[in-house]
Design a protein around this nucleic acid. Structure first.
Lengths: 337, 337
DNA sequence: TTGTAGGCGTTATCAC
DNA sequence: GTGATAACGCCTACAA
C-alpha cells in the first residue's frame, strides 16, 4: 500500500509537504496541493492513521461500553454520545460487555493501549485496572454513567431517576389507587435504588404507603417482570396498580396479568419507565415515563472531551426532562371514575 | 507514561527481552521474566498497542457496522461475531450507521487507516470507496451480510430466508387458512425478496395463491406493521391469517387488529419471523420462526479471519437452522378446528 | 537465552 | 512555502 513517501516522490515534493497538504492545506501553495492531490488519487493513497495516532498520541476515538444493546437506555444514550462526538471529529465504538468483567477489561485495554482516547462506561462493572490505579493520582479518561455514583473518583454523569419515579407514582396516586404493588430492579444498582425511592416518595406525598409484601424484585428483563408478577398474584393480597421500574418488566407484568385472566387496566393498572419503542404497541399500550437519555449521552461525551482540557474535571448531575406518557394501561380503579 | 524502555532499564535487561517476555514468555528465562514482571507492575506499565499495531501491521480489531442496534438481527448476530472473535483474540467494535452513507464511510476509514483489520457490514449501504476500488483487484477485508448478494465481489454470507418463510407459510396453510394477507418488507432488500418468495412458495405448495391486493409493504418497524395492517383492514377484503416478514411488523399488526376490535387468533392468525425477545410476551404471544442468526455472525467472522489466509476467499451461504415456534397468535380459522 | 539495530508511517521542529 | 530529520513505542531478524 502506498505511503506518504510514495506520494512525495510521485509529486516531486517532500513528505513534510504532503503531510501539511493533508492536515493544514492553507500552508501549502495551491499548485503544490494540486500535484499532491493528483498523486494521492493516482496511487490510491490512504493515510495510515495508526502511524498518525502513534505520533500524535491521539486516536480520535472513544469506546462506549454497554452491557447489552437491548437495554432501553443504550440506543438513545449512544445516539447522544455520537451527536457530540461527531461535532468533534471523534469516532464512537460500541463495546458489548454482556455485564462481564473480562470483556469490559478487554476493551479497557484499548484505552490503556492508546487505541482509543477514552471510555464511557454504562455498565454495572468498572474496569478492574481503575480500582487498583486510583491511588497514584493519574486517572484515565473514563466517564461513568449512572452506576457507581459514589464508588470512585472518576468523572461521571447520571440522570435524575428519582424524579421520573416520582412522576410515575404521582400518576397512579392521582388516579385514586391505594392498593399498589411494585416491581423493583436489582438491589445493588444505583438506578433501582433511586427509582424505588422515587416511587415511595411520590406515594407518600399522596399519603400512601407501599406494602413491603407487595414489592417484588426483577432484573429489568421482560421475563423477570413476568415472574415477579406471578409471585405477586400468588400471594393473594389484592392490588389495583402496579409500579414497574422499567418498561420491560411492565410488559412482562401485563402478560402475566392477562394469562391470569385479569384485565389491564380494568383490574390492575400498570405503569413503566423508559418509553421503549414497544411500549406503544403492547396490548394494552403501556403508560410510561419517557426519559431523554440522549441528553445524558451528550453530557457524558462532553465530559470526556473536557477531560482533555482539564483532567481534574469532576462530575455532572444531568437533569434530563421526563415526561409522563399516558396510554391505555392505566385508569382509575374499578368503581371510581 | 512508562514505556518499554523504562521497563528494560528498571529490570536491567534490553527492550527486546521485555518485548519477548510479554509476547513469547517461553523464550525468556523464568528469573528474567520475574524481574521484568516486577518492573512492569512497579511502574504501572501498559504496552502501547498503537505502536505495536504500527509495527505488526495489525490492530486485532474488527468493526461491525450496523444501521441500528434495534434491528432484530443485530444483537444475536453480533454475539455470534464476538464468539468467534474472542477465540482469536480479536476485539469487536460496533459502529452504528443509522443507515447513513457518511457514517459508514467514516468507520470504513478506520479500516483503510489500519486502525481495524476489517469490517463486517450488516447494512443496506456499502462503503463508497469499495465500489470505486473494486477494479484494481485489491479487495479490502470486508465481509458483507445478507444484502448485496449479487452486487459486489466481496466475501459475503447470507442466511436462508427462503426456508424460514416457507416454514411460516406452511404453518398457516396447515391450519386451514385460505384467505391470507401479507406484510412485506422494503422492496429493494434482498431479505424481503427472499422471505416474500418463501411465503408464496410455501402457500403455492398448499395450493393457495396470495392475492396481490392483500400484500402491503412496511419497513420492518413496528409502526410500519401497524400502518400496513390498517391499510389492509380499510380495503374490506376479508382475510383470516396474516404473514409478516418479521416480528416487529407482526407486533404492530396485532396492535392494529386489536384496536379494530378483531381478535387474534380468533378472527385473524398472525405469524412473524425472527423470534424477538418481545414475541413471547405480546398479547397474544406471537407465533414465529426462530432463526439462529448468531451462527451467521460466527460465519461472517470466520470468513473475515480466513481472508487473512487467503484473500481470494469467496462467499458462504450459511444455512442457519430455523424453527417454528407456535404460540398463541395462530389457530385454525373460525368454524374449523 | 539475550542484546543490537532497523524500521513501521506519520507529525512537528527546525532550518532554509 | 518547503525540505531534512528526529521522534512516537514497539517488534523482529540477526548476531552474540
Amino acid at each position: 500500500m502506498a505511503n506518504i513517501k510514495d506520494i512525495a516522490a510521485h509529486a516531486g515534493v517532500s513528505i513534510a509537504t504532503v503531510s501539511r497538504a493533508l492536515r493544514k492545506p492553507d500552508l501549502v501553495k495551491d499548485k503544490t496541493a494540486a500535484k499532491i492531490a493528483a498523486a494521492i488519487s493516482e496511487l490510491g493513497y490512504k493515510p495510515n492513521m495508526v502511524a498518525a495516532s502513534l505520533r500524535r498520541q491521539k486516536a480520535d476515538a472513544v469506546i462506549v461500553a454497554v452491557p447489552d444493546i437491548h437495554n432501553p437506555f443504550t440506543s438513545l444514550f449512544v445516539q447522544g454520545v455520537e451527536n457530540v462526538a461527531r461535532e468533534h471529529g471523534v469516532k464512537v465504538l460500541l463495546a458489548i460487555t454482556e455485564g462481564r468483567q473480562d470483556l469490559l477489561d478487554l476493551h479497557y485495554e484499548m484505552v490503556a493501549g492508546k487505541q482509543a482516547d477514552g471510555m464511557i462506561v454504562l455498565d454495572v462493572n468498572l474496569p478492574t485496572a481503575i480500582r487498583t490505579q486510583g491511588e497514584d493520582g493519574r486517572t484515565l479518561p473514563i466517564v461513568l454513567v449512572c452506576e457507581y455514583a459514589e464508588a470512585s473518583q472518576q468523572p461521571r454523569v447520571r440522570v435524575d431517576d428519582l424524579q421520573a419515579a416520582i412522576a410515575a407514582a404521582n400518576h397512579i396516586a392521582s388516579l385514586g389507587h391505594r392498593d399498589i404493588a411494585c416491581i423493583a430492579g436489582p438491589e445493588r444498582q444505583r438506578m433501582s435504588h433511586d427509582r424505588q425511592r422515587g416511587f415511595r416518595l411520590g406515594l407518600r406525598r399522596a399519603g400512601i404507603e407501599l406494602h413491603e409484601a407487595l414489592v417484588e424484585r426483577g432484573d429489568y428483563s421482560i421475563r423477570s417482570g413476568f415472574e415477579a408478577t406471578r409471585r405477586l398474584l400468588e400471594q393473594g393480597r389484592p392490588f389495583t396498580a402496579l409500579l414497574c421500574e422499567n418498561d420491560e418488566m411492565a410488559i412482562g407484568a401485563i402478560r402475566a396479568l392477562a394469562l391470569d385472566g385479569l384485565s389491564v387496566p380494568g383490574d390492575v393498572s400498570v405503569i413503566g419507565i423508559d418509553n421503549l419503542r414497544f411500549a406503544e404497541f403492547c396490548n394494552p399500550s403501556l403508560t410510561t415515563i419517557a426519559l431523554s437519555t440522549d441528553i445524558l449521552g451528550e453530557e457524558a461525551m462532553r465530559l470526556m472531551l473536557d477531560y482533555d482540557i482539564d483532567p481534574e474535571i469532576g462530575r455532572r448531575e444531568v437533569i434530563v426532562p421526563h415526561e409522563l406518557i399516558v396510554r391505555d394501561s392505566t385508569a382509575a380503579p374499578r368503581g371510581q371514575a
